[in-house]
């Protein structure tokens, strides 16, 4: 210990009166500034692009016809071509027709799953008789690996749209149902009692107490389920389809056509990111009371 008398100043080495370091805060307490935040966010993206650019340049220097790592410029041109040029045979623009086909499948699959999650989740979570009937069954159902069902789906529903949508439903509906059911079960007992003392029937409790409170959770859960929905979509398209984003990248794989595959992957990622953002904004706008939010002024 230093003497207590007189003003004590940190020394040049950054030690305080007790010999502890005082200049540097702990790592967990150091917050990046505004500019720092932007830079830190950009860092991994820039890093990956840079690494790709260097690797691509090295390979192309050796062999200008190397198909594996096309230059960023080539990829950009390729993306533009995919997004603007009409296919000579069909007259469709490849990227858009593939995107439309995939999004319809994804939208149907996820939409139907969300609806099932909402309805079945609420009744199994709220009504004891239904809970007894369905809850254990749903647990078992959700253990089936959906991809193992794919051959069955193709056999039963054919190789058309239905089997792909069904795969997505089998993949995400059990998760959504169980998540919503748990959410309903977590509603405080006091609220349900209170609603009854206000004269609400079971139907009115569902409509005015349970449904509005689980809707934001449904959007949250759907957001989490989108990742697996994409997985099942691309898997189904890879195996049997005539168009679609997943179909395309697996089709051109045979020709090592990285000029198509890489832009498609980036495009799929962008779409996934956009849906995630959309659902998050929607939750915040539609349900201001969720997470202790404030009423719109």
């Amino acid at each position: 210990m230093m003497s207590r008398g007189g003003p004590v100043r940190g020394t040049a080495t950054g030690t305080g009166p007790d010999g502890e370091r005082t200049r540097m805060k702990r790592l967990i307490n150091r917050q990046p500034g505004r500019v720092g935040s932007v830079l830190l966010t950009a860092l991994p993206f820039v890093g990956v692009l840079l690494a790709y650019g260097i690797a691509s340049a090295l390979r192309l220097a050796e062999n200008p016809n190397d198909p594996l790592l096309p230059s960023l410029l080539t990829l950009g041109e390729s993306f533009l071509r995919l997004a603007t040029e009409e296919n000579r045979r069909t007259g469709d623009i490849l990227l858009w027709s593939d995107t439309a086909a995939s999004l319809i499948r994804l939208g149907l699959g996820v939409g139907i799953s969300a609806l099932m999650g909402l309805i079945i989740g609420i009744v199994t979570g709220l009504i004891p008789v239904v809970h007894r009937t369905l809850s254990p069954f749903l647990v078992v159902l959700s253990m089936i690996p959906p991809l193992a069902l794919l051959p069955i789906l193709f056999i039963v529903f054919g190789v058309g749209e239905l089997s792909k949508v069904m795969l997505i439903i089998f993949g995400v509906a059990p998760f959504l149902i169980r998540d919503l059911q748990q959410r309903v079960e977590q509603l405080p007992r006091e609220q349900l009692i209170k609603a009854q003392t206000l004269g609400a029937s079971t139907w009115q409790i569902i409509l005015r107490v349970v449904l509005p409170q689980v809707m934001p959770r449904l959007l949250d859960a759907t957001r989490l389920a989108l990742g697996s929905a994409w997985l099942f979509l691309i898997a189904a398209e890879a195996i049997a389809a005539t168009e679609g984003l997943g179909y395309r990248i697996f089709l051109v794989r045979r020709y090592l056509d990285m000029e198509t595959i890489l832009p498609y992957v980036v495009w799929i990622t962008l779409l996934a990111f956009a849906f995630d953002l959309l659902l998050r904004v929607l939750t915040r706008r539609l349900f201001p009371w969720y997470r202790g939010g404030r009423a719109p002024a």
Partner: peptide
């Protein structure tokens, strides 16, 4: 039922 009103220590009101 509505003939008996109740107030609990917590969670008595609807947050939404």
């Amino acid at each position: 039922g509505p003939d008996r009103g109740v107030v609990f220590q917590r969670y008595s009101v609807f947050p939404h």
